[in-house]
């Protein structure tokens, strides 16, 4: 009797263990089912490489959105990376343990603040400043980059702190013993050892920036064109989906799902890269 129920439990748990995979497959299948036929119907070239987006007139080119996503994400990295990395180094290397116990929860709290709140601050505070001091419509790539940069800060910070902390103290002691200053120790001994962890953190932050929707819609202006400068408005892939989803029917809706397919592929590639980076870290 006991053995039997042990077997049953093992079976149930094995089944449960595949739930995440099952969900993943379900999601991918349904998004592909809605989006892929459309892509092949109008041709991947027409879909990916044309920047004419006018679904009601049968024009479905999302090149401008892909470019928009890239601009905004690169901008977010430009803002978030130096701040996050420098912050992580300082906090991990120079802060006593007790201070860390206050700072780390604060950082994680910021990761928990709803993205719409960030977006709203962008609209109310940031966009007017940009419009008045630099020109353009204010709702721009620059505004979106800054907001996203701040949003990915917690991700980059906390993963980088963890991986810097994970570098064995013997590395530092060895470097000090050779007469290196603290900074030399950091950039010659600690950072190279923490590199893959930091890269994983950056990639996860990237994923968050590309995938963010609501905050971006609020601050980026959503013009469906290839932006010429950071003061221009743009429309990232996520914004394209959420903006028009409520109204779209037929081909138009399929086109939005197809946009989702492209987004999903980009994210999957990033995930894969992050996983490889983490694996490298573990191997070391």
């Amino acid at each position: 009797m006991k053995i039997f129920s042990e077997m049953a439990i093992r079976r149930v748990l094995t089944g449960i263990a595949f739930s995440a995979i099952a969900m993943l497959i379900l999601i991918i299948l349904f998004i592909l089912k809605e989006g892929l036929p459309f892509i092949f119907q109008i041709g991947p070239g027409n879909f990916l490489l044309s920047s004419d987006w006018s679904p009601l007139n049968g024009k479905f080119g999302i090149f401008a959105m892909i470019v928009g996503s890239l601009w905004v994400t690169a901008g977010a990295l430009f803002i978030g990376l130096p701040l996050g990395l420098a912050g992580a180094i300082f906090l991990a290397e120079f802060l006593p343990r007790w201070a860390m116990r206050i700072i780390k929860p604060t950082i994680e709290l910021l990761a928990g603040i709803p993205s719409v709140v960030y977006g709203f601050i962008g609209v109310m505070v940031l966009a007017p400043i940009i419009r008045d001091s630099l020109g353009g419509p204010g709702l721009s790539i620059m505004a979106a980059s800054i907001i996203l940069g701040v949003m990915i800060l917690p991700t980059i910070l906390s993963i980088s702190i963890d991986s810097i902390k994970a570098v064995p103290n013997s590395y530092r002691e060895g470097s000090f013993a050779l007469g290196a200053t603290h900074w030399q120790t950091i950039h010659m001994a600690v950072l190279p050892a923490a590199k893959s962890g930091i890269i994983a953190g950056i990639i996860l932050g990237l994923g968050r920036a590309i995938g963010e929707t609501m905050a971006v819609i609020m601050v980026v202006g959503n013009a469906a064109k290839i932006p010429a400068s950071v003061l221009d408005s743009a429309r990232p892939l996520t914004a394209n989906i959420a903006l028009e989803m409520g109204y779209a029917t037929g081909m138009h809706r399929q086109a939005l799902f197809a946009t989702g397919v492209v987004l999903l592929i980009i994210i999957m590639m990033l995930n894969f890269a992050a996983n490889t980076a983490i694996k490298n870290m573990v191997k070391k």
């Binding site: 999601i27 929707t213 959420a242 989803m245 987004l263």
Partner: peptide
């Protein structure tokens, strides 16, 4: 890693 908008679509 899947963005929330994809969860929304799904």
């Amino acid at each position: 890693g899947i963005p929330s908008i994809i969860f929304g679509l799904f």
